[in-house]
């Protein structure tokens, strides 16, 4: 499963801001750490602001602040703001009216149900704990762990 760029930016921003909820951070500060475009990130932060997840203040010393509940806000909540997610309920696709098409849909729905359950169960607070545990691990180790090896 690959997340869209805006979704990844949103998750990184929320994690960065939630890690230090009393601190205001600028889009540039966050963009630098994750090597992403500050302009694109600013758009993402505005969307998060409209959703009541971050609060923006202007002027000197201004920036963004996390105002959500880290023990309740889940990865699923954030992803759902930026991209469609969930069982394959979209429109009719060629082959859907065959038994093979229905079998394929059944299997794809099983995968998506599992993904949804996983994303719905991981809160921002839990993500921060996972990030702390991953600190110092090489990217190869993280990929191997993610692949269950």
């Amino acid at each position: 499963m690959r997340l869209q760029v805006a979704t990844r930016h949103a998750i990184f921003s929320v994690l960065e801001l939630a890690a230090q909820p009393h601190r205001q951070m600028s889009a540039v500060d966050i963009a630098e750490k994750y090597a992403i475009s500050p302009n694109h990130l600013a758009k993402v932060l505005r969307t998060l602001g409209r959703e009541g997840i971050v609060d923006a203040s202007r002027g000197v010393g201004g920036g963004y602040r996390f105002v959500g509940n880290p023990k309740r806000l889940t990865l699923f909540d954030i992803i759902a703001i930026f991209e469609p997610i969930g069982p394959t309920t979209g429109g009719f696709e060629a082959g859907d009216d065959t038994s093979e098409g229905q079998a394929l849909r059944l299997v794809m729905n099983e995968i998506e149900d599992t993904a949804r359950a996983t994303l719905s169960s991981i809160t921002i607070d839990t993500m921060l704990k996972i990030a702390r545990r991953s600190k110092g691990a090489s990217i190869e180790t993280v990929i191997r762990k993610a692949a269950g090896q």
């Binding site: 359950a117 719905s120 169960s121 809160t123 607070d125 704990k129």
Partner: peptide
Amino acid sequence: ARDAQLVMSFFRAQGMMAGP
């Protein structure tokens, strides 16, 4: 259970991840 979000979130918060 996949739809037991509260219980699943609890165990996740204790550091549990999907197993093999």
